[in-house]
Design a protein around this nucleic acid. Structure first.
Lengths: 138, 138
DNA sequence: TTTACTGCAAACCGTTTGCAGTTCC
DNA sequence: GGAACTGCAAACGGTTTGCAGTAAA
């Protein structure tokens, strides 16, 4: 996923150690970390990194469309690096785990009834339920 | 909508002026107020009402399932009194207006692909786009 | 009269900001 | 060398909490 860093450089970003580390932490599938979790993990790789820089960097990544903000519960925002494939979220009502599910024509259909004249440009779905682990424990 | 007050009394609620006023403010269709907006409007009817009481009352209404919490953007939670009919939300990307659209079997279908073993119990959809007013202005 | 509810103020959490100092290019 | 970035600490908005006083039943 270092092509993310290349894309950022192409966009005129200065590649600092802090930004490299934030990008590194966000690497992977089904990653939905809070800013604080990003800060904590980034701090393991680069102890001096500040919260402000993590927030700045996350904000910039979101503005560039490289990372998505997800707010599946009322609490802290989560940052989702899977911005290249449209998807929805499966959220465990017990342990709060989040998984990505691909979007398709079916999930992205507009509502069947009255749309009050809105011109819909995006559909965002949160599926809530029990993940396999929490089903087993129940 | 005073049957809401009756239901609350049936559940052992003390009917105070403050609670009556909060219920009054939440009355209507397509109502999605923030706690602060509820406080402001409640204050027009009962000037001494405190923010803490508004928060307490909203929290209790949510716990009782009479009001839904909606977080369509990263900012303040909104309170939706339309808890009796399952529905989704249409959100204007420009002016933030919210409208309710009824849920049905089509909108509530599980994702077609891999669900990672989740047992899905709820589907929550946010449709984003331009409302008629904002289309006209654009 | 009792106990639930209210209002106040302080604390809280996640996030944003201003600014002086640092570092990438 | 200069603009862009970082870290700090203070401020912020939304929400929660502890507690003394008040009022519904």
């Amino acid at each position: 996923m270092s092509d993310l860093l290349e894309r950022l450089r192409d966009r005129g970003w200065r590649l600092t150690a802090q930004r490299r580390v934030v990008a590194e932490v966000l690497n992977g599938d089904h990653v939905h970390l809070t800013a604080d979790e990003v800060h904590e993990r980034a701090g393991r790789l680069l102890p001096e990194i500040s919260r402000a820089t993590v927030y700045n960097t996350l904000g910039e990544l979101v503005a560039l469309g490289e990372v998505l903000e997800v707010s599946t519960d009322g609490r802290a925002k989560r940052y989702d690096p899977n911005a290249r494939h449209r998807h929805h979220h499966l959220v465990c009502t017990n342990c709060r785990t989040i998984r990505d599910v691909p979007a398709d024509e079916t999930t992205d259909a507009p509502p069947s009834g009255d749309c009050f004249g809105f011109r819909i440009s995006d559909v965002e779905i949160t599926y809530r339920g029990l993940c396999p682990d929490c089903q087993a424990k129940a």
